[in-house]
Design a protein around this nucleic acid. Structure first.
Lengths: 261, 261
DNA sequence: GATGTGGTTCCATTAAGTGAAACTAAGTCT
DNA sequence: AGACTTAGTTTCACTTAATGGAACCACATC
């Protein structure tokens, strides 16, 4: 991950570096970045300088370490508020979480991968935040399959080849055929199950969030562990989950999300 | 606001454009941006192309309009989570909001201006100007004065000349002298009041959030309208507010925020 | 006072960004 | 239908800015 090859121009490199700092989750020293990136010393240096000048990064006065700058924080809020389902869905997730007492996930799709944009976990608030913003595969998560199932055919065709089908667990789909078959079932049932396909012991039930126009714009899921609940018990929550997804979808009516895929 | 002159190099321009799109709060067409920016057509075009290539912006397939891209959303989450007081303060704000039943604001300072990073609104009845992610002046807001008061002298000296002293309301400070005098009082009392200085009918009580080292890293406030409460009533909440600020400050101990000012 | 490490600056070379203008694709009007 | 505007895209000679190897500086550490 990190620096993909397609760094066109100076801007690409700068953004690459910016992301690199952001990914570190804290102050990073110059030499650490130098080691991480394949940029020559002077180039990296200038890039960082520029970003600091721009307020996107900020440099610690004494240690000289780099971190997120205020301008990025401001931009971040802006971007997040307008371009993610999260703020809109928040109250609905709160309600659902309070009612079912299990972990709730809200996800969108991003180039064939699942982007978790919000989470509720009734037990620990902190971990929640740590994980939102993370990316997971689509083919082996509840939310992923829920989205895939309801994607327009054309989009799905573009997304399928991007799936790695890495066998995370015994139950993981190992190829497109079985996955496509399951998607059919999901379309019929209206919800997707994660049957310990991504992580052993973790199961979930997921529903797509659809705008009134019918476009899938995300998915919600209720996740739990096999030690706490069975799939049947999760299935009992289906009406509640669908209701939540519908509520979010209805509100998202006017809202515009970046084109999928 | 928006595009300050200091756009060094291509990267600066690109970020400028990026921010411009983000500020629009929705899809923007090329020509709108062309009108907004002072960049020549071709330059703007290439800049946008680059940003789209980089995944920071996304272009609508049919309309061709530009909006926030998924990569920016991902970056945004990252940045927000690690670089703002918000995630850390969240539970404390929730608690305070539940207890006092009034609007709660969390703010940081950013180049002499106040950046609202989170808010709790218990009633939709009145809408304060402070939307999360928004910027407000320091000299005429509760949170702003609370921060100013406890800033180290050197920082304050840098920040004071940045205040515009625009008279939003009759009670607004009109110059540094009276403001500095009030800051003295605030230091003594430990809290700052907004006495309808920014918006008529809106009052608040604010407390600085300080790390154990004593550095001000933000402020919390309880805001209400004159129709609902008096300043004296707000003052009764002082212990509760101070407690909340202290709790956040204690937790922020290890946490590092970009250098102020 | 020598050696090492982390960070900053120089400068000739090269690549990349620039933007006026020309062009294409859709409308819109008569 | 043909002329005319409007919105977006491409071209290309020109200019500016990015590049990176190497030298340099600051400050520890031996």
């Amino acid at each position: 991950m990190g620096s993909e090859g397609h760094a066109d121009g100076t801007v690409g490199k700068a953004l690459d570096v910016l992301e690199m700092v952001a990914d570190q989750g804290g102050p990073v020293r110059f030499s650490d970045l130098l080691a991480l990136s394949h940029y020559p010393k002077a180039t990296l240096y200038r890039l960082l300088q520029t970003l600091v000048n721009q307020g996107m990064l900020s440099q610690d006065l004494d240690s000289g370490a780099y971190r997120i700058g205020v301008r990025l924080v401001r931009l971040a809020h802006n971007a997040w508020a307008q371009s993610s389902l999260a703020p809109l869905a928040r109250p609905h997730l709160d309600a659902l979480a309070a009612e079912v007492g299990e972990a709730i996930h809200l996800a969108q799709i991003d180039n064939g991968h699942i982007l978790f944009v919000d989470k509720r976990k009734t037990t620990n608030m902190f971990e929640t935040l740590a994980q939102a913003g993370r990316v997971a595969p689509a083919y082996c998560t509840g939310v992923g399959k829920a989205i895939l199932a309801f994607l327009p055919e054309a989009s799905r065709d573009k997304v399928m080849p991007q799936q790695s089908f890495h066998p995370y667990a015994p139950a993981t789909h190992t190829g497109p055929a079985s996955l496509l078959a399951e998607l059919e079932i999901i379309r019929a049932e209206g919800v997707a199950f994660d049957r310990e396909e991504h992580e052993r012991g973790i199961i979930s039930i997921a529903a797509p969030i659809r705008s009134r126009a019918g476009r899938v714009i995300g998915a919600v899921s209720i996740a739990t562990s096999t030690s706490r609940h069975t799939l049947e018990e999760l299935n009992a929550l289906k009406p509640r989950l669908l209701h939540c997804a519908a509520a979010i979808g209805a509100e998202a009516e006017s809202w515009q999300f970046p084109e999928i895929v």
